[in-house]
Design a protein around this nucleic acid. Sequence first.
DNA 1: AGTTGACTTGAACCGCGCTTCAAGTCGCAG
DNA 2: CTGCGACTTGAAGCGCGGTTCAAGTCAACT
Lengths: 151, 151
Amino acid sequence: MAEAGPGGLLDIGEVARESGLAPSALRFYEKKGLIAAAARNGLRRAYDPGVLHRLGLITCARSAGFSIAEVAALLSAGPGDEGLRERMAAKAEEVDEAIGRLTRLRDSLRHAAGCGHDPLVECPEFKRAVGRVPDPDAEPCTSAAGAGPVP
Amino acid sequence: MAEAGPGGLLDIGEVARESGLAPSALRFYEKKGLIAAAARNGLRRAYDPGVLHRLGLITCARSAGFSIAEVAALLSAGPGDEGLRERMAAKAEEVDEAIGRLTRLRDSLRHAAGCGHDPLVECPEFKRAVGRVPDPDAEPCTSAAGAGPVP
DNA sequence: AGTTGACTTGAACCGCGCTTCAAGTCGCAG
DNA sequence: CTGCGACTTGAAGCGCGGTTCAAGTCAACT
């Protein structure tokens, strides 16, 4: 194989192909401290294959609405970092709320795709599922202000 | 009450306060076709209270990773728009996949917040939950390329 | 020795989703 | 009539998350 360098390390092109990310994105992530090359072959980065798992985690968290900075914080967590662990637990709760919102949105979409309402937004079920009909208090979905994963 | 105009319509300031969105964001949404003022009081926008529900839906979809353009497409759906309905159903499936990813991420976060691994990213459970260990095929989480809600 | 071709760098650029700013338009209180 | 404050406009600016570009380095093949 011409793919693995001296110590079974991967070239940036390999990592890009395997991870589905652009090399520019990998360099960007490195600049932001999300990943690091295990070594250098001259100028060239040489990655430990484990970086692929790390990138999987990064992509997953990103798709969950985490910012680059938040992901960096997660990745740098050690066992002694109690504050960070607490923040992770808090993040888990945020994600849980996001799951609830997504679930209602998904159900609304599924219903809307099959029901026959004209503006479609006026479908009663759609309204009910997404919350906030004429109820001044109780923010079931719109509560995103300050709690949602979208900054 | 000094809040409701001639026909029970709301001023942009009212809508901003009730929805938690900035007036600038509301004007931005109007420019993008997401909402519309029911009337004008001179220059001033006068909104139907129903816009609050619409904004709830918008915020919900946005927090689910939908782009402004995608939300606009959803909101303009009518009963005769079969193609759009199909796309809504497809979107529902995407959201469903996102829910799966988020669920695994949440479980990983919860576990990681309590387990005692040093780089934390190396925790075997964390790895397992997030997928993509050394499996070239089968993209359980990283499949975001082309299917995920994050553009 | 020379020519690929994949990598390197920093800096410039891009689209998105707003926010901010400057300048102007109202209605109403004093 | 003269503020005041809440609105209006378009244009410019900002942070994020990268991509693109120009110029350079390096290993390997011919």
